[in-house]
């Protein structure tokens, strides 16, 4: 059910209200799902909206066979002001919400919004952030894991995505929601698919199905006949990721879709001169690997990252042989 979790007056108009949806018994296993950290990551918001409809349907008896067994919360929007502008951040504070956690109970607006989410999710067992690639890039659907223990990799397998990836340590990571969840004792999962500012239905289908499967596998949902299943997942650790950089500056035309497995030396695209269109460079894969991220925005500098490959030869863990 939709509940207000923050109601704060604004200087010139209607109050800003942050909502969550909540279902199930408060004492069961608890899952929190968050989207809308940046104001242009549409896939995440579409996924959480569809999940909310599905859970409401179960509660209303319209999804036969299903029962809600655990405590499920969904937080569709966090950076409310950024969503009003359609930009990843609100220009007023230039503050990326996913670099603002844990926030503060009393503070600037971004701090308060983020802290509200932290307080409402603190008691959960699992946390899922649904998002898409950074500005100018597209991600193949995958799950990112912080500190990927065997337990977490096992849990991630029930998210139904073929690719798992370790989140590399960096000094700003501590400001991310997922890292704060990790520090608070939740198992955090970041699901990323597609690109900002675009709704990509096939990706959203995949993420919705994956999250529903996760709920079934962890006993948050039950079904009279079907159980959650664990899927085949390739897991890649952070140190073996391979960024592909351009040699020349110009316009990048990619030859392959994101999510392609490529061979060493395979052409990924080319860079052409912006003014005259001439070929400056063929960009090829330096290694065999899975293209998890691909440049969307064609204008590229010299040494610009146009793709990230997850290297097959360092695949660490492969169900069912792991």
């Amino acid at each position: 059910m939709k509940q207000e979790i923050l109601n704060i007056p604004t200087p010139f108009g209607e109050p800003l209200v942050l909502y969550k949806n909540q279902w199930g018994p408060l004492d069961g296993e608890a899952l929190s799902i968050v989207s809308g950290l940046q104001g242009d990551r549409l896939n995440g918001v579409m996924v959480t909206s569809r999940l909310s409809r599905f859970l409401n349907d179960i509660e209303a008896g319209r999804e036969t066979g299903y029962q809600i067994r655990g405590n499920i919360q969904i937080f569709p929007i966090v950076n409310y002001k950024a969503w009003e502008t359609g930009n990843p951040v609100w220009n007023f504070d230039s503050q990326d919400a996913d670099l603002t956690f844990p926030g503060m109970e009393v503070g600037e607006l971004a701090e308060t919004l983020c802290n509200t989410v932290i307080r409402h999710t603190a008691e959960s067992d699992y946390g899922i952030v649904v998002q898409s690639a950074e500005k100018h890039y597209e991600d193949a659907p995958h799950v990112k894991l912080i500190d990927p223990s065997r337990t977490r990799r096992n849990l991630a397998r029930s998210l139904g995505l073929a690719v798992g990836r370790e989140v590399a340590e960096n000094p700003a990571l501590v400001l991310n929601l997922a890292k704060q969840w990790d520090l608070m004792g939740l198992h955090p999962f970041i699901l990323s698919a597609g690109k900002p500012q675009t709704y990509q239905p096939q990706y959203c289908d995949l993420l919705v199905d994956g999250i529903v499967n996760f709920m079934r596998s962890q006993g948050l949902l039950s079904h009279t006949r079907e159980k959650g299943s664990q899927q085949e997942m390739s897991f890649f650790d952070a140190e073996h990721e391979c960024p592909v950089l351009t040699r020349e500056a110009g316009l990048f035309y990619s030859d392959i879709p994101v999510g392609t497995a490529v061979d060493k030396g395979q052409k990924l695209g080319e860079v052409r001169d912006l003014y005259e269109g001439g070929l400056l460079e063929e960009v090829t894969a330096p290694e065999e690997g899975f293209v998890v991220t691909l440049r969307e925005y064609p204008m590229v500098h010299e040494q610009e990252c146009v793709a990230v490959l997850l290297r097959e030869n360092n695949r660490k863990w492969f169900w069912p042989f792991g």
Binding site: L99, K135, H136, N170, P171, A172, L175, H301, E304
Partner: peptide, 22 residues
């Protein structure tokens, strides 16, 4: 404040960083 094309804060990217974005 931010690098406009990427929307990034340059004073949140210091220290060892695995990323290879511009």
């Amino acid at each position: 404040r931010l690098w406009p094309l990427y929307g990034t804060d340059m004073n949140r990217m210091m220290g060892p960083h695995p990323d290879k974005s511009l």
